[in-house]
Amino acid sequence: MASSRITKTFKALKKQGRKAFIPYIMAGDPSIEKTKELVLLLEDCGADIIELGVPFTDPLADGPQIQRAAERALANGVRLRHVIALVKDLRKSTSVPLILMTYYNPVFKYGEEAFMKDASEAGVDGIIVPDLPPDEAGVLRRLSKKHGIDTIFLLAPTSTPERIETVVKASRGFIYYVSITGITGARLHLGSSLKESISRIRSLTDKPVAVGFGVKMPEEARAVSGIADGVIVGSEIVKRINSEPQDFSKLKEYLLSLRDAIR
């Protein structure tokens, strides 16, 4: 099978000795048109891969920033099908790897086969489903392979060696290491344990490892990029978008500072 756009991105970065900057935004917050503008802005600011959150009523792995963003997006009428259509539209102007971060029920209700087909045709490169551990993802994994979409699974500080093995095997594109025992947007603890956890994962696989949950400021991003292959920043970006939803000039400064920090 040809290697995916996500895999190619990590390979190219590795050659250049750089680390991936992976921002997350909630699709439809403040509006689907603004999300389009934001994706292009993120790419301009040096994002290597972009995560698009799919709004859901009950985002149990997310903190208040992202839950409120999902509530705003739902109030704007944005659903999974609109996010797929947005990706299709974006593909006219960008080839940056795009990942959908969605809870399982919208995908299940859409129909897993139909979802994979439509997402793949639209140009989605990967999916992250935080409430779907590999043990429950048999069907989705098979379909995602068939349609050329990477399934990215998560590991956490609580993961046992047995869990690490399962997740490493099931992940394609990269492995998402959750830096904290907690939800998105919580406080990051940069300590030796993060480094140890990542090396434990690395001893089992060559797949790239990106770290997310709790990375907010450039200093943190820099520290994480010293350990991992990629740095994911979500809640803080979502918060800043919401505080100035019409004017992205300050946001741009912040994004550039993150980009500069991730090496």
Binding site: P133, E136, F153, S159
Partner: peptide
């Protein structure tokens, strides 16, 4: 049924 939860909780469910 099943176990549709974040990975962080999987070891706890096993325990």
């Amino acid at each position: 049924g099943g176990q549709f939860v974040p990975e962080t909780l999987m070891p706890a469910l096993k325990e």
